Amino acid sequence: MLLMTIATKSLSSVPAGIVRVATAGIQIPVSFVRALIHRREVMRLAELDERGLKDIGLVHSDIAGALATSWLKDPSAVLASRSRSRSDIANARREHAVRHAAIKGSPEPMLAKKADFVVARCA
């Protein structure tokens, strides 16, 4: 408890600018190590076959593109954005099909209006 009090009092006397610089200096190596760990995990994903990658919404070219990024950049963020965009496109196509089914005589006109909104937003 005494150590906590001494640490708190000594840190409160340090100007805020120095604390910000020290925090930024620590965050850079931490983000680099995190990027290296995630790069290693993405390399493990490259060992999966097409079926395994399709289950998580990826293809081998996505992994190759993510690994082609800078060593300082997190490749898992690239994969997440590609997977998300691919699922958004699939949802838009699905909604578009529902809309056309509704136009051909389905009693679900409200569903068709919602599909128009989603397709327009994704386009």
Rank of each mutant, 00 (worst) to 15 (best):
K54C: 07
A46G: 12
A68N: 07
V78T: 07
R40T: 14
I56L: 09
V42E: 01
A46R: 13
E47Q: 12
D55Y: 08
R40K: 15
I63M: 01
R51Q: 13
L72E: 07
L45Q: 07
K73I: 09
L79S: 06
G52L: 11
R44D: 15
L67R: 04
L48D: 06
L36D: 11
S76T: 11
S61Q: 10
L45F: 09
S81R: 13
L72G: 04
A64C: 04
T69N: 04
P75S: 04
G65M: 08
A77P: 01
S70F: 00
S61I: 06
R39H: 04
L48N: 10
L58Y: 06
I56K: 03
L67E: 02
T69E: 07
R82Q: 13
R40V: 09
W71R: 14
V42C: 02
D55K: 15
M43N: 05
D74V: 02
I37P: 00
S76N: 08
L67H: 04
E41D: 06
R82K: 15
S70Y: 00
A46T: 03
G65R: 10
G57V: 06
L79G: 06
V59R: 12
P75K: 01
L58G: 08
R44N: 14
E47G: 02
V59S: 07
R82G: 02
L45P: 00
E41S: 03
L72H: 05
I56W: 06
S70P: 01
V42I: 12
L36R: 15
K73N: 07
V59F: 04
L67M: 07
A66N: 09
V59D: 14
A77K: 13
M43H: 03
S70Q: 03
G52K: 13
W71M: 11
A68M: 04
P75M: 02
L58H: 10
R82H: 12
S70A: 08
R51D: 11
P75W: 01
V78D: 01
D62I: 03
R44K: 15
D49Y: 06
D55S: 14
R44L: 14
D49A: 11
E50I: 14
V42L: 02
I63F: 00
V59H: 09
R51E: 10
R44S: 13
M43R: 13
A80L: 10
G52P: 12
A80S: 14
L45E: 03
D49H: 08
A64E: 11
S70L: 02
A46I: 02
V78M: 00
K54Q: 13
I37C: 10
S61Y: 05
I56N: 04
A77L: 14
H38F: 04
W71Y: 12
L79F: 08
I37W: 01
I56R: 05
A68I: 00
V42Y: 00
A68H: 03
L36I: 08
S81M: 06
L36M: 12
I63D: 00
I37S: 07
M43G: 09
